[in-house]
């Protein structure tokens, strides 16, 4: 099976037999999208919640995969280029935890990332089939393009969570 690693602020699409993997989601959020009918999977590793908040920094090239609000549309675009249908997509969410134990007030970036990803998916009308988010531990997220199976693993929990897309949900 061909394995494609998705780095931080990075996205990838795979079809048929491929496996997409992102290692080490902490505050970052992983969004996996799947078109079951065409066996097309996409995965993005999002760093921050909102591109508009951070556009003041113009010294760098804009990377849409970095921010929840731009990463999800970018992932959909990449999947559509491979033949996926927007109406067929379902989503899985993982990450958005708080790994560092320090005293601070307010909402951590992990929680903001989760909320931003949920909001964007809702706006685009994509159903979230599974979510393994929050807490204080890191996660590794995998999606199998052939089966749509999503596996979330972590160091602190031996248990692997497995979600399989139920037939019919989201298919057009």
């Amino acid at each position: 099976m061909e394995t494609t690693y998705v780095y931080i602020a990075d996205l990838a699409v795979s079809q048929n037999e491929g496996l997409l993997v992102t290692i080490g989601l902490g505050s970052c959020v992983g969004v996996a999208l799947y078109d079951a009918k065409r066996k097309i999977a996409g995965l993005v590793h999002i760093l921050l919640n909102d591109s508009k908040q951070y556009l003041r920094d113009r010294s760098n090239q804009f990377n849409p995969a970095k921010f929840a609000d731009t990463a999800i549309p970018e992932l959909i675009k990449a999947m559509e280029e491979r033949g996926a249908s927007r109406g067929a997509l379902v989503a899985h969410l993982a990450g958005g935890s708080q790994l560092f134990d320090y005293k601070f007030d307010g909402v951590g970036i992990g929680q903001k990332n989760i909320e931003a990803a949920r909001a964007k998916l809702k706006e685009l009308g994509i159903a979230i089939l599974s979510e393994d988010t929050g807490g204080d531990y890191g996660r590794t997220m995998k999606i199998n393009a052939g089966s749509g199976e999503v596996i979330i693993s972590s160091l602190s929990r031996e248990k692997k969570l497995t979600f399989i897309n139920p037939r019919g949900v989201g298919s057009d």
């Binding site: 080490g24 505050s27 970052c28 005293k103 992990g110």
Partner: peptide, 26 residues
């Protein structure tokens, strides 16, 4: 600053440093 401690995957911790500090560099 006072220290923050994390015990986890190296990659997740390093990614969290970048995210928590909102470092925007490429």
């Amino acid at each position: 600053s006072p220290p923050g401690l994390g015990l986890d995957m190296a990659g997740a911790l390093l990614g969290s440093v970048i995210a928590d500090k909102a470092m925007l560099e490429d």
